[in-house]
Simulated scan of single mutants.
Amino acid sequence: MSVGTAAPYRIRGGIDSLNSRLHKTGLRVFLVIVLAHWAEHLTQAVQIYAMGWPVPEARGVLGIPFPWLVTSEWMHYGYALVMLVGFILLRPGFSGTSRIWWNITLGVQVWHHFEHLLLLIQALSGAYLAGRAVPTSIIQLLAPRVELHLFYNALVTLPMVIAMVVHTRTDDAAARCTCAVRA
């Protein structure tokens, strides 16, 4: 095997390991990332609706010491990309009903990623959608950004959790991992 052909084999081998012997660990790490993101959005919602903070001041947990994080479209886009890549990389480990639910969440994340890409392009170009004063996503034309992101996170998380529960509660012969709770 030449040096130029070794990398694709290592990548395929890594993805295969991630979806077999490392699938449970990969899913747990991914879930921690998702829950940390939820914590940020829920903290921001509490700051706005329970504590009465103005939206620009409600920056979640990390946004308090690092306010530039909340206004950075790069950070938001980066998270959307990490999520998309995670859903794609972990997808081969699912089969049957759990794969259907994983595909649903992947589809929602594809749209969510597109919206963040649109926001990033606007931030970089200075040309904003519909003549708005700030970068604006398509659905943000209909719903405020804070509420929209809570909704998007719910749309991504709910089928993801269903997929993970179904995946771990079934004795699926097609599963190549050790995620399933077996009797």
Results as ranks from 00 to 15, higher is better:
182 R>H: 07
173 A>G: 05
115 E>N: 07
179 C>N: 11
70 V>P: 02
25 T>N: 11
107 G>H: 01
19 N>P: 15
156 V>Q: 06
124 L>E: 00
178 T>Q: 15
48 I>T: 09
161 V>Q: 01
77 Y>E: 02
37 H>S: 08
101 W>Q: 03
76 H>P: 03
108 V>A: 05
58 A>H: 05
5 T>H: 12
52 G>T: 02
156 V>P: 04
50 A>R: 04
5 T>N: 13
124 L>F: 00
181 V>H: 14
151 F>T: 08
136 T>W: 02
134 V>C: 02
164 M>Y: 15
83 M>P: 05
110 V>T: 03
107 G>F: 01
65 P>H: 10
113 H>F: 01
40 E>H: 03
43 T>P: 12
59 R>C: 05
38 W>Q: 08
122 Q>F: 00
180 A>D: 10
66 F>N: 03
116 H>T: 00
125 S>N: 00
44 Q>W: 08
107 G>Y: 01
54 P>Y: 11
112 H>M: 05
93 G>F: 13
18 L>C: 09
157 T>A: 08
135 P>L: 00
174 A>H: 09
68 W>P: 03
58 A>S: 07
149 H>P: 11
59 R>Q: 13
73 E>V: 00
8 P>Y: 14
106 L>K: 02
101 W>F: 14
77 Y>Q: 04
160 M>Q: 06
183 A>G: 15
121 I>M: 00
154 A>M: 07
139 I>Q: 07
137 S>N: 10
39 A>C: 13
55 V>Y: 03
86 G>R: 04
7 A>I: 13
170 T>I: 05
60 G>S: 06
51 M>N: 11
90 L>C: 06
113 H>E: 00
68 W>A: 05
78 G>W: 00
115 E>W: 08
171 D>P: 04
79 Y>I: 01
81 L>P: 07
44 Q>T: 12
154 A>W: 06
75 M>A: 09
31 L>A: 14
173 A>Y: 05
157 T>Q: 06
58 A>W: 03
15 I>H: 10
134 V>E: 09
5 T>S: 14
71 T>Y: 10
31 L>N: 11
91 R>C: 04
122 Q>S: 01
82 V>E: 00
173 A>D: 04
174 A>K: 12
168 T>I: 11
20 S>V: 06
113 H>Y: 02
39 A>I: 12
182 R>I: 10
1 M>Y: 14
174 A>Y: 06
34 V>M: 15
65 P>T: 07
58 A>I: 04
172 D>P: 11
89 L>C: 11
21 R>N: 13
135 P>V: 00
157 T>W: 14
110 V>L: 03
162 I>Y: 13
152 Y>T: 04
62 L>Q: 02
16 D>I: 10
6 A>M: 12
50 A>P: 03
144 P>M: 05
107 G>I: 00
88 I>C: 03
153 N>F: 15
66 F>M: 05
47 Q>W: 03
26 G>I: 10
